[in-house]
């Protein structure tokens, strides 16, 4: 499969009054058309910043190095003008918090229409009609009426549908969904996930699903990448990763996710605190919390390597060797 979006050796760092902080380190990823990549990690693991960099939306004190290519266009080196021809049109993002992500003083219809007016140069009338179509497509009831409403008049679930409609306006090749369900009620979460599934099937776009919720990944993604302290520690197909995770962190994550298919007495937790990016542990960043830690982990950093099973992991520990 040819990949639409390719991230190569991406590093993102932020300058703060207390020194530089590297939020993303040497990350390489790719997604193909019609594929859904799940990106999992704790808050602060750098999963969102990776794609903020792709959208050119890093905070002002942030800088990115490496390459992010969308169909050959390097988004990192593109200037604001060039970037604006791509984002919203060929790559779109759905944000975490639908409550605050829509402009409060603009009617929903106008906010939707302006995307297509900007990128395809259609007139206002057409823009409005296309907005209406799109609201229908994301199953917003009484779409006509909603067009003339302000965001605060809509419920959280509806607003997230509007956000999705907004991302779909120009039928982009890549859709990045950053925690699309986190701020919503559980029942609404399921509906939004169904909608995303539908988009994936119908649109054939590449979807990146950023979340800390493994359940969301299991339902929607084809492949999964796990991030810890700014690095990818495990990557593989959803089926393999969920059946036999190879990195201790992923194993821990899975162990603390409640499952219906496996009987457990008590939920596990991962010991210790998420790492402080300003003073990362030596060697493998996960070693202070790792149940399998040994001397080498403290001295040397493991690289992401393929395992015989076709998965990738950044870990020295080898379960097979240890069992011997």
């Amino acid at each position: 499969m040819t990949s639409v979006l390719e991230i190569e050796n991406l590093s993102v760092s932020f300058t703060t009054p207390d020194g530089d902080v590297e939020a993303v380190t040497d990350v390489s990823l790719s997604v193909g058309a019609g594929e859904c990549l799940g990106l999992v990690g704790e808050s602060g693991s750098g999963k969102s910043q990776t794609f903020m960099a792709a959208m050119g939306l890093l905070a002002e004190n942030g800088t990115a190095s490496g390459h992010i290519r969308l169909d050959g266009i390097d988004l990192l080196s593109a200037d604001e003008k060039k970037l604006n021809t791509v984002r919203g049109d060929r790559i779109a993002m759905i944000f975490q918090d639908p409550m605050t992500s829509l402009t409060p003083h603009m009617k929903v219809g106008r906010q939707l229409a302006e995307v297509i007016i900007e990128h395809q140069g259609v007139d206002k009338e057409t823009g409005r009609r296309r907005a209406l179509d799109m609201l229908d497509r994301v199953h917003i009831p009484e779409a006509e009426r909603r067009l003339d409403m302000y965001p605060h008049e809509l419920s959280g679930g509806l607003r997230q549908r509007v956000m999705i409609a907004m991302a779909l306006m120009c039928e982009p090749e890549v859709i990045i969904a950053d925690e699309p369900t986190t701020a919503l009620d559980v029942t609404v979460q399921a509906q939004i996930l169904d909608l995303l599934m539908e988009v994936k099937v119908n649109l054939g776009a590449a979807i990146v699903l950023i979340t800390h919720d493994l359940g969301v990944i299991a339902g929607l993604a084809d492949r999964v990448a796990v991030m810890y302290a700014g690095r990818i520690v495990e990557q593989g197909s959803v089926a393999d990763t969920f059946a036999s995770p190879v990195h201790p962190y992923t194993q821990g994550l899975l162990a603390c996710t409640p499952r219906l298919d496996v009987e457990t007495e008590a939920l596990e937790t991962i010991s210790g605190q998420p790492p402080n990016l300003q003073s990362l542990p030596t060697g493998c960043s996960f070693h202070p919390r790792c149940p399998h830690v040994f001397e080498r982990c403290q001295a040397e950093r493991p690289l992401l390597e393929r395992t015989p099973s076709g998965q990738s992991k950044a870990c020295f520990f080898n379960a097979a060797e240890a069992a011997e």
Partner: peptide, 16 residues
């Protein structure tokens, strides 16, 4: 060896 580490990990989890 791995067992020992595991138990350490577990006890760490219950240090509330």
């Amino acid at each position: 060896m791995s067992d020992a580490h595991m138990s350490e990990g577990r006890s760490g989890a219950n240090l509330s």
